[in-house]
């Protein structure tokens, strides 16, 4: 499935609205794009082949203390949702969920082809997956936030900043 130009434009506009910075690149450009926004130490999980590879500096298979010490976490997003600038983050046995949650900065790598226009399209994709073999997805939009302490603060329990690397063939 291809994503037309306007859906991708809408997605990147909405990423901006929610204070998520982004890079557009090809699979070959992914390691550099990640490196450019990564402060060390960094943890992450291996990307699917189609999305390129992680830079060497990203520690995969992190221990709990690695997670707590990491400044950056790099994981793949299974979908992007254009209307909301959302990144759909899976939970995987190799630990994508904690790697995207504990570090102060989350770098999400998503295929442009996996950016869907709206919430209905995203849930249609997820519904089949969940019914077939369970599975989890965090629809993540912007950084973690709270207003409970009297003003809006980013990074309440989760990342203070999010960057999306959008991969085109």
């Amino acid at each position: 499935m291809t994503t037309d130009h306007t859906t991708l434009d809408r997605f990147t506009e909405r990423l901006d609205d929610f204070d998520v910075s982004h890079t557009l690149t090809t699979p070959d450009g992914v390691p550099d794009a990640i490196e450019a926004v990564t402060d060390l130490p960094a943890v992450g999980v291996e990307l699917p082949d189609s999305l390129g590879r992680l830079p060497e500096s990203v520690e995969t298979d992190p221990s709990p203390s690695d997670l707590e010490a990491a400044v950056t976490g790099v994981t793949a997003a299974t979908l992007g949702i254009a209307d909301y600038g959302s990144l759909v983050l899976p939970s995987t046995p190799d630990g994508a969920e904690p790697a995207s949650l504990y570090p102060d900065r989350h770098v999400a790598v998503v295929a442009a082809a996996d950016v869907v226009p709206g919430m209905s399209e995203a849930l249609a994709r997820l519904g089949d997956r969940f019914r077939a073999d369970g599975g989890d997805a965090i629809v993540a939009t912007g950084p973690s936030a709270t207003a409970d302490m009297g003003a809006l603060v980013k990074g309440a329990h989760g990342p203070k900043a999010v960057h999306a690397v959008v991969v085109r063939p």
């Binding site: 298979d61 709990p64 203390s65 909301y84 997805a137 965090i138 993540a140 939009t141 989760g158």
Partner: peptide, 28 residues
């Protein structure tokens, strides 16, 4: 427009367990 996180979980979740005391992860 949307809150930061809408967690869609089909538990038990697929993430490894995290033991911060022994500093080990375990199988989901």
């Amino acid at each position: 427009d949307i809150t930061s996180y809408v967690s869609l979980l089909t538990p038990p979740v697929d993430s490894p367990t995290l033991d911060f005391q022994s500093d080990e992860t375990g199988p989901a």
